[in-house]
């Protein structure tokens, strides 16, 4: 698909999501609101990032050092839209909902798509490792809440939303684990150290560290 086609698709999908019947259907249930509509809007931003990545101004790429500023924006954006208060207002007030429709693609999805590739693997793993328990903890808090946290959602919907978040957290964690466990072919398989090399050669160890791993090249 060429770039213009993709942009058209994004705009079309965005408008369809905004259509009143679909909007009401997706926002009518707290769990669907949080786990379907919000991720879809973020996904549109991700697609947008793919389209405009080529045209990204140089200074922006420079300023987004290791993707950290971008990812911080993402964290704030997602955290805000995890608050019951924010979701509630979005249901109550179309203007607030419009803010959601703009901010999730532009301030969450887009920076995520741009910054993610700039992050080192450790940073990405760290983001996952923070996101998963946070999702679970928020789910747990929804279950533990003594009262309704949203004016527009019933207590049972709140509980369903809590369980849904927990299930998603567990599923993400499991998938992440399986991916790392099965893994992918070694980047430099040739550099694999001789096994059975149990190590330290005899001799005074002193405080001289043994030589570190070095890929043989």
């Amino acid at each position: 698909m060429n770039n213009n086609g993709r942009l058209l698709l994004i705009a079309g999908a965005w408008l369809i999501l905004w259509l009143r019947p679909l909007r009401i259907a997706l926002e009518g249930d707290m769990a669907v609101h949080m786990t379907v509509q919000v991720p879809l809007l973020i996904g549109l931003g991700l697609l947008l990032a793919v389209s405009i990545r080529g045209q990204e101004p140089h200074w922006l790429a420079e300023a987004d050092w290791l993707g950290i500023p971008g990812i911080i924006l993402v964290i704030f954006g997602t955290s805000f839209w995890m608050l019951p208060r924010a979701l509630d207002s979005a249901v109550a007030d179309p203007w607030f909902d419009a803010i959601k429709f703009l901010s999730l693609p532009l301030l969450v999805g887009l920076p995520l798509g741009l910054s993610w590739r700039r992050m080192p693997p450790l940073g990405r793993a760290f983001i996952w490792a923070n996101f998963i328990p946070k999702l679970g903890a928020i789910g747990g808090l929804y279950l533990a809440a003594p009262t309704r946290l949203c004016a527009y959602y019933r207590l049972d919907q709140q509980a369903t939303a809590g369980w849904t978040l927990i299930v998603i957290a567990v599923a993400l964690g499991t998938l992440w684990f399986i991916a790392a466990f099965v893994g992918w072919p070694p980047q430099h398989a040739a550099a694999r150290p001789p096994s059975r090399d149990t190590g330290s050669k005899p001799g005074p160890p002193l405080l001289a560290l043994p030589p570190p791993y070095a890929s043989s090249r």
Partner: peptide
């Protein structure tokens, strides 16, 4: 992971 490819290995 960079050397062994997967945690299982």
């Amino acid at each position: 992971l960079s050397v062994y490819g997967g945690l299982g290995a």
